[in-house]
Design a protein around this nucleic acid. Structure first.
Length: 268
DNA sequence: ATGGTTGCGGAGCAA
């Protein structure tokens, strides 16, 4: 029974931050890295640099300027070909893989739309897109039944719990923590019977954040963070969870992302 | 209440 270390990171430009990927590999020793916001067309992906870090197996789904996902792996895997094109946009927000481990392991890397600034689906098309995206993913999970030997991770752009934000009261009207978004994310989680792998180790009310705005004068002193990045596992994998890490130190790396890497180690 | 920063791409949009 192999033990895997799997990381999710919204890298916010894979070309700009390729050197930081080396720091991530040094610090976390991952077997699989799932990236979001690579902002890189597939033809321009820095394959050589990633190969040199020890990741011979890669899949990328990128576009010019925005979005983009990638899976970098020490183990072989195949890209899942029949997963949906969410909201029929072809906007590179999901990459599914079947990892070559005994018994198989499904891995879904998501970049959920951020949703703009106004939490109103009529006034703000970006917020409508966010809710529609999650509704489609929820229906997909519901149709497939409870997940088995599967992981679901990525930048979901929602902080569901009061202890996932620096101030529940002050963020109730802020996109990422509104009740309608929280209900949508909880519905998605329920539809797939997903188990929150980070809250498995750190139950509420302990605070956990994975994102701090670039706009803060001193992100560390103000510590106004949100837990936007998540790792969920199917119920049959929950007993295999071994370790976790939110790599807060990465927020102080030179020219870093506003998100930090999140790691889970588990027996699969 | 407002404004604050970053990346892409080379202005303005998205976050």
């Amino acid at each position: 029974m192999p033990t895997l270390r799997i990381v999710t990171w919204n890298i916010n430009s894979v070309r700009l931050r390729l050197p930081l990927l080396a720091d991530l590999v040094r610090d976390l020793a991952p077997d699989v890295i799932c990236l979001q916001e690579t902002k890189c067309p597939d033809a321009l992906f820095p394959h050589e640099g990633v190969e040199a870090l020890g990741f011979p197996h890669r899949a990328v789904r990128g576009m010019k300027g925005y979005n983009g996902t990638a899976i970098l792996s020490r183990l072989p895997f195949s890209v899942r070909a029949d997963d949906p094109d969410w909201c029929a946009r072809g906007d590179c927000r999901h990459l599914g893989a079947d990892l070559a481990v005994p018994g198989g392991l499904e891995l879904h890397n998501f970049y959920v739309p951020a949703g703009g600034d106004v939490p109103d689906r009529e006034a703000n098309p970006k917020f409508a897109h966010k809710l529609d995206f999650i509704a489609e993913a929820t229906a997909w999970n519901a149709a497939r039944g409870p997940a088995r030997r599967a992981m679901m991770l990525g930048d979901l752009n929602i902080a569901p719990l009061e202890s996932d934000v620096w101030s529940h009261r002050q963020l109730l009207d802020v996109v990422s923590h509104t009740p309608v978004e929280v209900a949508a994310l909880e519905g998605w989680q329920r539809a797939g019977a997903w188990h929150d792998a980070i809250r498995h180790f750190v139950p509420p009310p302990e605070k956990i954040y994975t994102w701090w705005s670039y706009r803060a004068r001193d992100w560390e002193a103000s510590d106004r963070g949100r837990r936007l990045d998540h790792i969920w596992v199917s119920q049959d994998l929950a007993a295999g969870l071994r370790d976790w890490r939110v790599h807060r130190a990465a927020r102080n790396w030179t020219q870093t992302s506003d998100h930090v890497p999140v790691l889970v180690e588990l027996d699969v």
